[in-house]
Design a binder for these strands. Structure first.
Lengths: 254, 254
DNA sequence: GTCTATATCATGATAGAC
DNA sequence: GTCTATCATGATATAGAC
């Protein structure tokens, strides 16, 4: 459908990703979409409302699929706790798979979303907070159940780290490019083996990104706990607890 | 020193962190610093130049300390490879320790830096790229030497993920707060045990952040490799290589 | 070096003809 | 619904008195 609101939504998303929400002007958007300058205010009311609309469309779908995936896992596990790796796949895998499926603008929004997680703008932050509240609560609870011997605070931190690694993995391709370059102008190692049409396709192969990311995240989630946890537990209940923790964290679910 | 340029630098850094670089105006900065509106352009030339100056000050110091730390590690190890965990501590630990030491604005800049890594603004990105080029190259090489059996591409990706987890851990405190909340208005678990003066002090205890982050990062770096790596190697050289890889990744350096 | 005053321009939003 | 024209505002930057 090439209706005006849709044209605006599509091109706004693209420009927001490219230049940032603050820096993108209504004039840029309407020019790119080939519609009149007044159209944004007519159809959406304001720039803010347009922004909200863009995120709402994608996020409600994404988070509903996440909730559905978690429901399926919990149903399949009956009352037993779900494996951490499955929980992570339901949360982060759903994100990447949706972006991959919807070729039209999927990866674009993925990048925008990654950036927006560190957006300082007030209204965006309260909006995202409300949009994420339920999913985060449900997944947090699932992880806590899944790792009963890991202190709750540590789980929250690691969830936080995982969100960061994912957001940045998607948004900040700069550092990856920087890392990949041998140095300025060095041309060793067969410069053009694959088609250089899409600059990022070499590195950002999205079907390989997911397994790469998942292994990293699971490794981080199950890493040994920092010492102050085991120390605190040791003095509370003499020494058995600490062992249980490092086992459950290093080797699997509870 | 309360000189005008310093007043500007300090308050600009603060406001950039709070509202973002794009959204912060020269009027806000000069008003907060108690200097004249024209002072920024007089002392720095333009808003862009002011931004560059702020990042330059902090980043060159940070990255020089990082290089020095790596030099020390490599000298101490003679020609043997350095342990991955030590490399990570030299890179990410130096960042957090600098921020912690410099009470005056250290944590502020830390947050700003975390956000800036996903900044879409063109001139900031090319500036950051040049500023990081040497450190990233040196640390990349160190990690490659440190994990000789891990494919180079995987190391780059994991370095990328680690950068993300760290940047976000610092910048995006929102999701952490969201995760920490039990739900709206629930007040279980002794609401005010420590002084609530600094809203974030409870969660963002920076001395605990470092061990938490380090364990997570090391866990992620040493996680088992995704399957397509071992498969590729298996068909190239029959099966010994795959075992070597998962050992070196799961248990330690090469 | 610091100030006031202002130039110049781009922004988001709106009013009103079609 | 779509257009042109325009408004009010706030941005960066500068000129020139002190």
């Amino acid at each position: 459908m090439q209706t005006t609101p849709n044209l605006i939504l599509r091109h706004a998303e693209l420009l927001f990703t490219q230049f940032g929400v603050e820096a993108t002007t209504l004039r840029q958007i309407t020019a790119a979409a080939g519609v009149n300058l007044a159209a944004v205010n007519y159809h959406f009311g304001s720039k803010e409302a347009l922004i909200r609309e863009i995120f709402k469309r994608r996020l409600t779908q994404l988070n509903q699929e996440r909730l559905a995936a978690l429901d399926r896992l919990e149903k399949a596990a009956a009352s037993r706790p779900v494996k951490p790796a499955k929980i992570l796949d339901a949360f982060f895998g759903t994100l990447l798979r949706i972006a991959q499926k919807d070729k039209q603008g999927g990866p674009t929004f993925l990048k925008l979303l990654g950036r927006t997680h560190t957006e300082p703008s007030e209204f965006i932050r309260v909006f995202l907070a409300s949009e994420y509240e339920e999913v985060l609560r449900r997944y947090k609870e699932a992880l806590i159940k899944s790792l009963p011997d890991v202190p709750r605070e540590e789980i929250l931190w690691r969830f936080h780290f995982m969100l960061g690694a994912t957001a940045y993995a998607i948004a900040g391709t700069d550092s990856l490019k920087l890392l990949a370059h041998e140095g300025p102008k060095e041309t060793q190692e067969a410069p053009s083996r694959s088609k250089p049409k899409d600059q990022e396709s070499d590195l950002m192969q999205i079907d390989r990104l997911l397994p790469r990311l998942m292994n990293f995240l699971v490794g981080g989630l199950r890493a040994p706990l920092p010492e102050f946890n085991t120390q605190a537990l040791r003095q509370a209940q003499p020494r058995q607890a600490a062992l249980r923790i490092s086992r459950s964290v290093n080797q699997g679910r509870g």
